[in-house]
Design a binder for these strands. Structure first.
Lengths: 349, 349
DNA sequence: GCTACCTTTGTAAACGCTTGCAGTCTAGCC
DNA sequence: GGCTAGACTGCAAGCGTTTACAAAGGTAGC
């Protein structure tokens, strides 16, 4: 394949392979002149360290695994994208592990062969130095296996016991959204909550729901069950939730807080279908920062998913490269209210 | 880390490491009883072959690289997702390479350090056994470097010289879309074409445009420049293209063929903003099979992106494992007209 | 001028598998 | 019964780096 090995470089540079290795790895104990000579030789021969050989000898692969429940949904891939940028710039490759969701309608200990193989085989191959979990719920067994790997692990968006997690303060996010609506004068605000069909512990939706409840309570407003509906985290889910919330033409909420932007799109569809104008008849606010929100004029809480991935990645780098100087890690993730056309004061206010 | 090596398994099973290796690799020259004993020993010890060691010794990493210009756009990640399923089931991991687009507004030979590093370093590390290129335009130099790797390479969606490519027949896709509109009775059909801001050779949009032209020509209709507009492949792009196409209130097309579903969403927005009802005042058809199309009632040509990824992956597997029995590879990719609410006969028909 | 120490480099032993080659054993054949 | 082919298995040499340790060459202090 690549017939240029470290030996040829060593020969050309007139040093030993050990020195080549040290020079190319940026080790300090190499004189400037030697390092220069080695680098030039390497460039001339087009030499690049073999990942497998280096990995075997050093025990480090310079590769990080990203585990996610969905490989083609915007939020998850945005996180991945942000992580990729950071890790790649630090010289790491990304390997993706698809951790298939355990569906709610399955029994807890359901036998999912792919997922099982992931934890019992793939991860044990030690192809990666560290793992980034994106919005994942793990069983105790799975968490144990992860810890047994003895590698840095960081979770994004969904806290896991014993795993450092980076997530926005979902309660605060929800409160911000609802408060925005309250400040516009809304008093009858509904919540289109997200249910992950695969989620075993509901963190995100529960917290957002709690934020909704809290904000209403603080405003002295009641939380009514007819003002809460659920759907999965897609526009379809948002649509069906909205259809429920808006079912009674004589008693409709004046605003809907949707647990994600894609759900909010569904709410917009529903409103349109019911001939409700947004924001005149109904205000809508979402969460995420999905790119189509701009065009649709959707007010949202942007939680900067790519930035979340980047932050998680930096946290891993801190552990992977303790010598390096790292900027202090942000622990509380930023979010931001973006006001667009879909929210306004209620007509009857 | 993982202190169970092949030697312990060999001891426990009472055989040599060579036999363990062969048994676990599924080589034929191992007796059934020995194989069983080895497998049991491995399971008991929780032994899994080390990826690096195996890779170094055998020269094969059991990992495939996926190169894409965008890491968080639906089409690309759907392809990746389909490929992942197939490859993972075959025992391969996926490593992602972000090949940053060379933007159109750059000079051709633009110096993009990340992209350069990808071709001059990352790929040379031989971390993967094969490569899947998703909608990528490469320079000659880059293609040469790829070939120099001596590894199986397959491209999806955008033909590259000397690289086996799997793509839908974009001309036929466009013709199907336009023909659908013609059959509904439309005679004034516009094209909201996609421009990839990064694309250097325009394959997809050009072919779709050609299909549009052909279908019109076959129907004896003229192609007018005022009926063609371009935007990037996003809903924003579709929106601005549609705003141009629909600018003259007295002379509007009765239908718009958008080069992607996301663009079609933008067209729908534009129509709505102009108080045009869909499909009464304007029919809209897209291409892709994006999941939100269902809710939006968008007629589209589904090109099954995940299936494209799967097909590309299978093609790689054929080359990676010549011994195995493989089903014959599909070469022409399937697509499918999905009729929904956004298209109907024109009112004036 | 001698010692002690630091910097830089080389030597060679891993790292944990895979695989060509050779050897053993069994069974079939004449 | 001797011979051969074939089926298994083991031996040991890599695979291409990294890195602990040793060695060499300076430098500075006294």
């Amino acid at each position: 394949m690549n017939n240029v090995g470290i030996r040829k470089v060593a020969e050309l540079a007139g040093v030993s392979t050990a020195t080549v290795s040290r020079a190319l790895a940026g080790k300090p104990s190499v004189s400037a002149s030697t390092r220069a000579r080695v680098e030039e030789a390497a460039k001339e021969l087009g030499y690049v360290v073999s990942a497998t050989a280096s990995g075997l000898a050093s025990g480090r692969t310079r590769s990080v695994g990203v585990m996610m429940p969905f490989l083609n949904r915007w939020f998850f891939t945005s996180v991945m994208s942000g992580a990729h940028r950071v890790l790649n710039d630090a010289g790491y490759d990304l390997t993706i592990y698809h951790c298939e969701p355990n569906r709610l309608d399955d029994t807890q200990g359901v036998h999912n062969p792919r997922r099982e193989r992931l934890f019992q085989e793939s991860l044990l191959r030690h192809r990666v130095d560290a793992l980034l979990l994106v919005t994942l719920s793990l069983t105790t067994t799975e968490r144990d296996r992860l810890h047994a790997l003895g590698k840095p692990v960081v979770a994004i968006d969904r806290p896991q016991p014993d795993i450092p997690t980076f997530a926005v303060d979902n309660l605060a996010v929800a409160k911000t959204a609802v408060t925005h609506l309250l400040e516009l004068g809304h008093r009858d605000i509904a919540y289109a909550g997200g249910v992950l069909p695969y989620d075993l512990d509901f963190q995100v939706p529960v917290l957002r729901r709690a934020g909704y409840d809290t904000a209403l309570a603080e405003a002295g407003l009641p939380v009514r069950s007819t003002r809460v509906a659920e759907g999965d985290f897609t526009s379809q889910g948002g649509y069906s939730a909205a259809m429920k919330l808006l079912a009674d033409p004589h008693h409709r909420p004046t605003a809907i807080f949707a647990a994600s932007d894609e759900m909010a799109y569904g709410v917009l569809m529903a409103a349109r279908e019911l001939d409700l104008r947004v924001p005149e008849d109904l205000s809508v606010i979402g969460v995420d920062g999905h790119p189509m929100g701009d065009l649709l004029g959707l007010t949202t809480i942007d939680q900067h998913p790519a930035e979340q991935g980047a932050i998680g990645a930096r946290a891993l780098l801190v552990e992977l490269e303790p010598d390096e100087q790292h900027p202090p890690a942000a622990t509380r993730l930023p979010f931001e209210l973006i006001t667009r056309r879909s929210t306004a004061a209620p007509r009857t206010a």
